[in-house]
Amino acid sequence: MIRQAMTVALLLSSLAVPGTAFARDQIRIVGSSTVYPFSTRVAEEFGRITKFKTPIIESTGTGGGFKLFCAGAGMDTPDLSNASRAIKKSEIETCAKAGVDAITEVKIGYDGIVLANSREAPQMNITLEQLYRALAKDLPDGKGGFQPNPNQKWSDVDPSLPDKRIEVLGPPPTSGTRDAFAELAMEGGCKKIGAIEELEKSEPDKFKAVCQGIREDGAYIEAGENDVLIVRKLEANSNAFGIFGYSFLEQNQDKIQGSKINGIADTYENISSGEYPISRSLFIYVKKAHVGVIPGLQEFLVEFTSDKASGPEGYLSDKGLIALPDAEREKYQKVAKEFPDNVSM
């Protein structure tokens, strides 16, 4: 009886040594579902052509990724975190508190956010201000106050736009794409409106709420995190528009088309040159404590930043990643070899 009890106790105590039991020879990556298709492509190539094991990539979303990444510096935490936005100050603080005090930021490319519709309907040409007026929750009422968005049709916003009901399918607030859209498109258009401009300095909180608030009266439909679903719905309903990442447009160009924003089409070249207004940067964050400890970590980042992968002709461009301009790409190729502390703690 006593022997049995001791065996059980031993077994339990062997389990209870936190985080030391398993040495790792495989890179672990967490983070953004937007970066996931690119990251997995590189990982697969890396696993096939090098002697290292194929990294494991979890699709947790940018925020969820940083939570795991910043949980500690131990070897049981991820080495890299993919992000479809830059790391926030609060996340850097969480990281530092848990002992992750040296992080390297590697920019890998751009992603355009497109406003697309079915090819059966005409292509739309819209300015950011018009887009803001179509999708904002509240608009200035002209008397210094705000009123709920009265625009029901695109033509209510501007007579040049189609005489159709506003119907936009987009990601829910939990999505990084939604954050980026609110920041780049909505706020970008919002700033063009004189009445709001003054708010930015006097009441920054209200400015953010007014500029990034998206209407909830049914004109903007939250279609879930699944972009494939939005593409399918656009095929079925030629009156609807959808908001999603460029790679989904790139794969479905026979069925859907992107709208011109401020007169600029969402082509690879325009997003790459920065002319297309709604584009964001994609990043990988590296835990410096793991460099040189986890085998292959450095080689993986060299592969990721190489021209062969993320250059304009690289295999990631075929998956819809938009390459950095040459000078910037060279800069990050150097970063991937030297790992400077380029995230200020």
Binding site: Q26, T54, I57, S59
Partner: peptide, 16 residues
Amino acid sequence: GMVAFIVDIPSGPLDP
């Protein structure tokens, strides 16, 4: 962490 991209076929209950 099981919602992940894993190319190697697991050979036991401890493999990813």
